[in-house]
Write a protein that binds this DNA or RNA. Structure first.
Lengths: 200, 200
DNA sequence: CTGCATGGTATCGAATCGAAACTATATTTT
DNA sequence: AAAATATAGTTTCGATTCGATACCATGCAG
């Protein structure tokens, strides 16, 4: 069995390519490009700090000008809605429209992935997640860009009570589901002891 | 710790995006698009059955027409060489030129990945590889497309002696290094007992 | 108020992309 | 063996993305 990091890279890139092809397939019916589908999926997972054109651009790795174009298209098709932020009127907030939600629900871009991973034990999935998460964290630090992540593992995350949470950086109270969405203010908690596989 | 397959997908896609951005960065100096860099990297890993335009197209998930364009460009820049196959004169064989090898050596598209994974233990890498490999196999089967892989785990792979190998499907004898390259004739060996993590 | 930074949009040229038509070589059928 | 079909690549075309740059509006610091 192979333990070469390059083999892991190989797999990640190959899987990424296949899922991109899947996005192409899903979108072709509606004349959407892969990047459009990716944008919709992203918005379905973004939280209140990451639902902006800027964040989306960072996330998919293209420039803001291009993203602006894509959003224009998605808006024309009625798949997303854009509205102004109250506090800072420069920023545009994005959300899926009903049609957009429906599109994702009908086409299930992640369905083939779910199928492909259905026989992998939770334990192995968790171990793989743990390893890739570490790679991602380091990669983001080295590129010193765009720390995306979710509340688990973020140093600003605070638990007020059993079911009440709070972002220490922004001071907002967060609902349970929102703590699982993609955030753009994510900062890794002081790490160090992540090198051992855990058992179920 | 999360064991949701969708979290794994999220990571795979995100890492894929970052590495694609890396390809863009690496190629920008030489005016190469990400897909060109990916093609070069692919050719550096392809074996005698997978060094064709067709295989490359399948691998990166674009059409053969588009690949043909990219190869034309890479050829003009002197980064690859194209030559005709002896037995079937329709097929074109591809290989990196000296310049192409040098380009990869100088720019090391995989360097940042190596950095990012340097602190992950071999054991965790191997477990992650194992899980992703299974996902890839299933995904390829479901899309019934393009089974890429290397000799380990291929049902046509035969070991003649300590250091002599052979592809049972094509009948060719293979060198040791070649058994580690990317093949296009890969077929999964009768699997079944892959559900347990192994220890170092 | 004056600079300066920031989020987003508009415009432009270059280049990818898929689709389809086309060429040349192999293979199968008749 | 001739004809029909399949396969590997190339070419051409129009649509679309993409990055670069300039631009606009809002926020903010002095």
């Amino acid at each position: 069995m192979d333990k070469n990091p390059l083999v892991l890279l190989e797999l990640v890139e190959r899987l990424g390519n296949l899922m991109r092809a899947e996005s192409r397939r899903v979108g072709s019916e509606e004349q959407l490009q892969p990047v459009h589908v990716e944008a919709l999926v992203y918005l379905s997972k973004a939280n209140r700090y990451s639902n902006t054109p800027q964040a989306l651009a960072e996330y998919v790795g293209i420039t803001k000008g291009t993203v602006s174009q894509s959003l224009l298209l998605l808006d024309r098709r009625g798949l997303i809605e854009r509205y102004q932020d109250d506090l800072d009127r420069r920023v545009v907030r994005l959300r899926l429209s009903q049609t957009g939600e429906q599109f994702l629900y009908d086409n299930q871009p992640q369905h083939s992935w779910q199928q492909a991973t259905r026989n992998i034990s939770p334990n192995r999935i968790r171990n793989a997640v743990s390893a890739l998460r570490e790679a991602l964290t380091t990669l983001q630090q080295d590129n010193e860009g765009s720390p995306f992540g979710s509340c688990q593992g973020c140093q600003h995350f605070e638990r007020l009570s059993a079911r009440a949470y709070r972002c220490g950086l922004m001071g907002d109270r967060l609902s349970g589901p929102e703590t699982r969405r993609i955030c753009w203010l994510y900062e890794e908690k002081g790490t160090g002891a992540e090198d051992e596989d855990e058992e179920e």
